[in-house]
Amino acid sequence: MQLTILRSQLLSGLEKVGRAVNSRSTLPVLAHVFLEACDNRLSFFATDLETGIVMPVSAEVKTPGRTTVPAGPFTEYAKTLPTQAELTLTLKDGKLTVKSGASKASFATGDPGDYPPRPTLAEADHTFTLLPGVLKDLLRQTLPVTATDEARAILTGVQFDAAPAQLTLRAADGFRACVAQAGYESLPLAPFQAVVTARSLREVLRLLDGTHPEAVQIIADQQARVAFLLAEGVIVFAQTLAGEYPDVDQVVPKTATTEAVLSVEAFIRACKQMRVAADKPREALGRLDLQNSGANAVKVTAEGEILTASETTLTGDVTVTGQSMQIALNLAFVLDMLEVIKTSHVRLKANAPNTPVVLTPEGVPGLLYVIMPMVGH
């Protein structure tokens, strides 16, 4: 294998696939990146057996070939070379030599036959297309709600429910849930459901921010894989999770005895003020007093060991209907939702202090969050 490539192109490929490299695996080959040169392109592929990323870049290929090389040292060395450098890569006698001007380095390589094979899309059963902005919004809305505890592995992923009329994503961690819906750019060939790991989806979101596709094609095959085809030939392969996903829709209350509409900006500020009182910000407890006696108001309070008491009252741009009520919520969960919605107001619905609370952004159909109250606080 021999080729000439710009440093910028080499680094672009290495950095895009590098997050799928697993340097701590018991399989040493997973610390490598797979390189294949042909048709004036150098294709990078890395996988940790859960997520796989493919990235092709332009190169002047003199002799086609393929190999694997340790991703970490190879990437770090490439970063030290001049920004505008043109590099020559030559594979010979099991070593990959990189030459740039007066600099030259040789890397030990691995047998490409030992590397996990790149998935194929030949047996794809289901495919549909989304606008990139739509997919970004769906992932930003649902990913914060996924579980991190492997004891309930199915909750560490997001459920994709591709029905004929619309796509629904569901996420839950046992304390809260999110349901987000959107329309297609092109309709699915056939309905399907799959639970995709949150880690893979975070890579999709990261790569969407670094590329600018006109549309994203999503493909599911018979091998329990889902592929996301992005711009510039970038593909993310995600392994799906086996098991039955909980029926999230069942925990969503259909009615409410109390409703409040609040300014998102003011609610965020209040939650952040109360969170200061918490010893552990992710476990910040806030009490919401929804007042519908006289002037509408929502009073938010919190307590802590150092900041012993904190309170703020939201008035003016607040509407409370139904019964007055006090509810204790994890403020970190509330902020996770408020900081990703793109509306000026949010609607809060509740039936009792010990029943699920529903939060929906005003003017955004098909998006809701359910948060379990912290009963006994």
Rank of each mutant, 00 (worst) to 15 (best):
A46K: 00
P144V: 03
P144T: 09
K79A: 15
E50H: 10
L131H: 10
T168F: 02
A108L: 15
A177W: 01
P82T: 10
P64K: 06
V98A: 11
T67M: 02
D111P: 03
L87S: 05
A162D: 05
L49Q: 14
G72Q: 15
A124V: 15
G113P: 04
A177S: 15
E123I: 06
G65H: 00
L167E: 03
T156I: 06
T109K: 01
T47D: 07
F128D: 03
L96N: 04
A59H: 05
T83F: 10
K104C: 14
F74G: 02
T142C: 06
G133Y: 03
L91D: 03
A102E: 15
S106R: 08
I154Q: 06
S58F: 12
D173E: 10
E123S: 14
S58E: 15
P82E: 12
T83E: 15
R66I: 07
L135A: 03
A78V: 06
P116Y: 02
V134G: 00
A85G: 10
A122C: 04
G52Y: 01
F160M: 06
P119N: 07
F160G: 00
A85T: 07
T88R: 09
Y77E: 11
T156N: 12
R140G: 11
T148E: 14
G110N: 08
P119W: 05
T88P: 02
K62W: 11
V57T: 12
P112V: 06
Y115W: 04
T67A: 04
E50S: 10
K95P: 05
G113W: 04
S100M: 07
F175R: 15
A105N: 12
L139W: 01
D48V: 01
L81H: 10
T120H: 04
V158N: 00
A147N: 08
Q84L: 11
L143F: 00
L138G: 01
G72H: 14
T146L: 03
P73H: 09
G157Q: 01
R176V: 11
G72C: 10
G174Q: 10
V57C: 08
G94D: 10
T97E: 14
T83D: 14
L130P: 02
P132D: 05
P132K: 00
A105H: 13
A71Q: 09
R152V: 13
G65Q: 02
L138K: 01
I154V: 14
R152I: 14
T75D: 10
I53T: 04
L87V: 07
S100Q: 13
G113C: 04
T67H: 02
L135R: 00
R118T: 14
F74R: 03
Q166W: 07
L131C: 03
L89R: 01
I154M: 04
S100V: 12
A163E: 15
T120Y: 02
G52A: 09
